[in-house]
């Protein structure tokens, strides 16, 4: 399998109030083909910052460095801002967590999708609208023409997230980064959205980076899992082998998963070893 994304020793550091840099991502390495990679870790472990660094969306005051950061042979560290912008949306897409905040409240959802297409393709307005409607249908929205004209506050969370997926897939990227795409949704809606995402990624043969704090979700959805802790990858493992995880943190996460019919008292608490963060 050819390598789509190659990340070696990625670091992201933010300046604190005294001007010293504090690393939020501390040397993350992985490579990705057209497969599904899960990234799990607790809140604040650097998952989102890893994803954003790949897209070039790190906050301007932060410092990004890596031994290697390439996408399809393109050196992202040497690429100009314009070149990186041309990649965003066209070749790498990103689905954010909460459609309530991540859609522009004063633009109707249809135009937000059209805009994503027209940013990268020379497509007339009518043609773009047709494609957007088709994309809405592809994310299983029943009456695309009706939804096209709605504003974000008029759609439900599940529908909002499907709009978000449509928007990020309409330019047919090779890689999709989904940053906790279902964490803000109701449990029943989560499954629907995931199955849509699953199908589209499979149909289009894209690579996927699926970020989540939910180990069970990641393991059922991805081929491979990175476990992050305090800005580092502490374990990389095939989803099928999770039961044989080596790292104490991963095992801790696994043992926190409740099982049906099991009676547990007291609830297990994840114990942390300062060694892990070294």
């Amino acid at each position: 399998m050819s390598i789509l994304l190659d990340v070696q020793n990625l670091k992201v550091a933010f300046p604190n109030r005294d001007g010293d840099y504090v690393e939020a991502v501390r040397g993350v390495s992985f490579a990705l083909g057209r497969e599904r990679l899960g990234i799990v870790g607790e809140s604040g472990s650097g998952k989102s910052q890893t994803g954003r660094a790949i897209l070039g969306l790190t906050a301007p005051q932060a410092r990004v460095s890596a031994d290697r950061l390439t996408f399809d042979g393109i050196d992202l560290l040497k690429a100009s801002p314009a070149e990186r912008r041309a990649l965003r949306g066209a070749r790498i897409g990103m689905v954010l967590q909460d459609p309530k905040y991540s859609l522009n409240p004063v633009m109707n959802v249809g135009n937000q999708i059209v805009e994503a297409l027209q940013a990268h393709r020379k497509v007339g307005d009518r043609e773009a609208r047709e494609q957007a409607l088709a994309m809405l249908a592809a994310v299983q929205i029943d009456r695309p023409a009706r939804v096209f004209d709605l504003y974000p506050h008029e759609v439900s969370g599940g529908m909002g997230q499907r709009v978000m997926i449509a928007m990020m897939l309409i330019a047919e990227p090779d890689l999709l980064i989904a940053d906790e795409p279902t964490s803000a949704l109701d449990v029943t809606v989560q499954l629907q959205v995931l199955s849509i995402l699953d199908r589209l990624v499979a149909e289009r043969g894209m690579g996927l980076i699926f970020i989540s704090h939910d180990l069970r979700l990641v393991s059922s959805f991805c081929d491979r899992v990175l476990v992050m802790y305090a800005g580092r990858v502490v374990e990389e493992i095939a989803a099928a082998d999770l039961g044989a995880a080596q790292h104490a943190y991963t095992r801790g996460l696994l043992s926190c998963l409740p099982r049906l019919g099991e009676h547990r008292h007291p609830l297990p608490v994840l114990s942390r070893d300062p060694e892990w963060a070294r």
Binding site: L55, L57, L87, Y101, N104, E115, H120
Partner: peptide
Amino acid sequence: AQEYIVTARAKGLSESR
């Protein structure tokens, strides 16, 4: 500082837009 701006950047829109 809103999230929808991150979305707009992720779509690859130009800064002026």
